[in-house]
Amino acid sequence: MRGFDLDQNGIISYVALGDSFTEGMDDPYPDSGETPNGRYRGWADRLAEHLADNVAEVRYANLAVRGKLIRQIVADQVPRAMELRPDLITICAGGNDIIRPGTDPDEIAEIFRRTIAKLSETGATIVVFTGMDTGFQPVMRHLRGKIATYNMHLRAIADEYGCLVVDLWSMKPLQDHRAWSWDRLHLSPEGHRRLSLRACEVLGLPVDADWREPWPPEAPRDWRMARQDDLHWAREFLVPWIGRRLTGRSSGDGVRPKRPNLERLR
């Protein structure tokens, strides 16, 4: 499928669906702070901004909420997207399911397929995202095969329904620790910036930067400092994450979508 058709004098409506990845954690706006309920920017907001640079008006909604599983995205976000009937839909779903023990990527992919079939009824251009290659992350490396299986399904679904694909697996610059926030699960502001540029490339939007740009050289880290970082991460992220899994809680409990309606950008 070719890129997204743009009318520079026209109006584009865009709806983003997903979890924390699409909500924008951990890329806060300068005036929001890094509080749990702060407003995040993220690659989807940045993509909407790029769209606004190229057309007369962009109306943008972001329904994504952190921590959501694919069934929750289908139940809570897809009906609203169908109701809004936008020109462009981006959806990244299933990641929180895949990282949980015992989940079946074939089953998750079938849910995703039915979701894309439904969203296709809107006539919107749909952009889907593959999972990241976690081979560079020691804690997440064991999920690599499971993610690869899911990715193969996603590509087949994209082919079936004519979706555009942002291939995160092949984005080698995101395999640098500086592309990730302190929790090692969400992108850093620079990671989100690069991903937005990649999404623009897939859509055929002109940009003035390259997501492939090499990272600047970095001084070697002392092993003691690296060990302290590992301990801090385990204490501040891993232990609370395990606690939420054991008690059935989610980081998205009580969190509302940051842009529930199609609103003019700028």
Rank of each mutant, 00 (worst) to 15 (best):
G3A: 07
G3V: 04
D5Q: 12
D7A: 01
Q8P: 08
N9D: 14
G10N: 04
S13H: 00
S13Y: 00
G18W: 08
G18R: 05
M25A: 11
D27V: 03
P30M: 04
P30Q: 06
S32E: 05
E34F: 12
P36W: 07
Y40N: 08
H50G: 02
D53P: 01
D53M: 02
A56H: 01
V58F: 00
R59S: 01
Y60C: 02
Y60K: 01
G67E: 12
I70H: 03
A75K: 12
A75P: 03
Q77N: 03
L84N: 05
L88A: 12
T90G: 05
I91S: 08
I91D: 14
A93W: 07
G94N: 07
I98M: 08
E107N: 07
E110A: 11
I116V: 15
S120A: 15
T122W: 04
V127H: 00
M132H: 13
R144H: 11
K146V: 14
I147G: 03
A148F: 11
A148V: 13
N151F: 06
M152A: 14
L154F: 04
R155K: 14
G162T: 15
L164E: 13
S170H: 11
G191M: 08
G191L: 10
R194M: 07
R194T: 07
L195E: 02
L197V: 08
A199W: 00
E201S: 11
L203N: 08
G204Q: 05
G204L: 02
G204T: 10
D210L: 09
W215Q: 10
W215P: 13
W215H: 12
D222E: 15
W223Q: 13
M225Y: 14
A226H: 13
R235E: 15
V239E: 11
T247P: 09
S251D: 15
K258A: 08
P260D: 09
L262H: 08
E263P: 02
R264L: 00
